[in-house]
């Protein structure tokens, strides 16, 4: 999880202390709809996973994202 948060923090361009598994979509200014799209793309590339559309649409928190990378 720590490594995942570090990866996300780099994409957000924030310090890792600014986010947690419970950070919600829209909760911090960096995580807007554009960043959401980019996050899906970057995470798919990095973790070599395919996030199905309906799962991706349901993502609320970074923990949800992380769960999808572990599938």
């Amino acid at each position: 999880m720590d490594e995942f948060l570090q990866f996300v923090a780099e994409i957000f361009e924030v310090d890792v202390s600014a986010i947690s598994p419970d950070t919600r979509y829209g909760e911090i200014p960096e995580w807007d709809s554009l960043m959401h799209l980019r996050l899906i793309g970057e995470i798919e590339e990095r973790y070599e996973v395919e996030l199905p559309l309906d799962d991706a649409s349901d993502i609320q928190t970074l923990r949800d994202f992380y769960a999808l990378t572990q599938a």
Partner: peptide
Amino acid sequence: YSPKMWYLGGQPYAMSAT
């Protein structure tokens, strides 16, 4: 192309194609 990116965010390209 990535249909998912299109449906999710109105961007037709896959991340790598971007």
